[in-house]
């Protein structure tokens, strides 16, 4: 039940935003995120954006993965 899915923010107005998920546009609530901008990816749970997905950190995790994998070769 704690599932959350990444959505991309298309536009925002006050505490609401329009976001895209798999090509479908939905209205979501962004009141618990301090700083969301158009084109950000956010994790959405029960209609609320609960966190911004950090692209840099995603990249770092993938780098870490590469490092771990290389150790095994």
């Amino acid at each position: 039940m704690c599932l959350a899915v990444p959505y991309k923010i298309i536009s925002k107005k006050g505490i609401k935003a329009i976001a895209d998920v798999f090509g479908i546009k939905k209205e979501i609530d962004i009141r618990i995120l301090d700083d969301v901008n158009v084109n950000d990816y956010v994790l959405v749970h029960a209609g609320f954006a609960i966190q911004k997905l950090d692209q840099e950190e995603a990249k770092t995790t993938l780098d870490l993965l590469r490092e771990i994998s290389e150790e095994s070769v």
Partner: peptide, 18 residues
């Protein structure tokens, strides 16, 4: 923390305030 793209050290303080 192996889910850093979503989980910040301090979580989401605005959500916790609510």
């Amino acid at each position: 923390n192996r889910y850093k793209r979503a989980v910040k050290e301090n979580g989401n303080p605005a959500a916790r305030r609510l």
